[in-house]
Amino acid sequence: MTKTRVPAIEGWFTMDPDAPHLLGTRCTRCSNVFFPKEESYCRNPECGGTEFEETKLSRRGRVWSFTNNCYAPPEPFMAKEPFEPYAIAAVELEAEKMIVIGQVTAGTEVGDLEAGMEMELVLDILYEDDENEYIVWKWQPAA
């Protein structure tokens, strides 16, 4: 039986399996971009805007820094048994000049990463139950 792929959080990213994007908002007044979405009042203190449009963030960026989890994080993280260590990267999106953290896909470890490396956004399974696979964004070295 094939499980249904559902986003682990609604509205934070597109579910396009080939070229997913994080979804932010852009203030229609000052053009500043927010992720996660800001939808009520613009946080740029010079602006005062109250209208936003959804915007897809750059799919690629460069590694600002990276680390890993050698031990399982506490709940509400849904750790696999046995726990498999994984890397985490902070990636700077070039157009937005915004750093976004995310898990790094399996197979890429801390030793494979360096600052400035180009990464791309992919979708992967965060955890699953009997019916669903819960999907989250992850970073992967750019092809």
């Binding site: 682990a8 959080i9 600002w64 820094s65 990276f66 680390t67 890993n68 989890n69 399982a72 994080p73 506490p74 709940e75 509400p76 993280f77 849904m78 750790a79 994984y86 985490i88 902070a90 953290i101 995310g102 898990q103 360096e114 600052a115 965060l126 989250v136």
Partner: peptide, 23 residues
């Protein structure tokens, strides 16, 4: 959410800052 979606514990942020110094 940072725990749920990324497993970003406090030491993860400390690790990012530390690695940045190395790089």
């Amino acid at each position: 959410l940072r725990f749920r979606l990324v497993g970003a514990t406090n030491p993860v942020y400390f690790g990012l800052w530390a690695r940045r110094r190395m790089e």
